[in-house]
Amino acid sequence: MTSETNKQICRDYFKAFLARDAAWMEKHVATTFVRHDPGLDFEVRGPQGVLQLHDALMPAFPDMKLDLEDLVAEEDKVLVRLVIRATHTGPFGAMAPTGKPIRVAVLDLFKIRDGVLVEHWAQLDNLGMLKQLGALAA
């Protein structure tokens, strides 16, 4: 796969995530896929894990937009710098809806093998998000 192809797979991943496109996930996310994310209290493994992540986030932030700012690819890896923009209108874990907008910076590193996502390292500004939601003092 070329670097441009791998970048497109990552662009498509984010579209499929927002749309909860299970068919895309089954085709492009390995059953052995693992998302390394220190901010989650559950493991994201395989296509079903990605769908579980969608189901955990989207009710809280149904207007979520993922603004892809940069994509850098080398060999089998793609680094994506993006910004999550959303409004907190549903329960988020134990947190009741606040109605507050969030803007969260994210770095996602994906490993791709033969057109399939096999591993993902996610770094989100969770502290900044909690401050925006009023869960922590600014």
Rank of each mutant, 00 (worst) to 15 (best):
M1D: 09
T5L: 12
N6I: 00
Q8P: 05
D12M: 09
D12C: 08
F14Y: 15
F14T: 05
F17H: 00
L18I: 11
R20H: 14
R20V: 11
D21R: 08
A23E: 07
A23F: 03
A23G: 06
W24V: 00
M25D: 01
E26Y: 06
K27P: 04
K27G: 04
H28L: 00
A30W: 07
T32M: 05
F33Y: 13
F33L: 03
F33V: 09
R35S: 05
R35Q: 11
H36W: 06
D37F: 10
D41W: 06
D41F: 13
P47D: 09
G49E: 04
V50T: 06
V50Y: 11
L53I: 04
D55I: 01
L57G: 07
M58N: 01
M58V: 14
P59H: 04
P59A: 00
A60G: 02
A60W: 01
A60V: 05
F61H: 07
P62E: 08
K65E: 15
K65C: 11
K65P: 09
D76N: 11
D76M: 07
V78H: 05
T87Y: 00
T89H: 03
G90W: 09
G93F: 10
G93T: 05
G93Q: 03
A94I: 15
M95R: 13
A96I: 02
P97I: 10
T98L: 08
G99A: 07
P101W: 09
P101S: 09
V104W: 02
A105T: 14
A105V: 08
L107I: 14
L107C: 09
D108C: 04
F110M: 06
K111T: 14
I112N: 08
D114H: 14
D114Y: 00
L117G: 04
V118Q: 08
Q123G: 06
L124D: 10
L124A: 12
L127N: 13
L127V: 15
G128L: 08
M129V: 00
L130F: 13
Q132P: 11
Q132D: 10
L133M: 11
L136Q: 04
L136H: 01
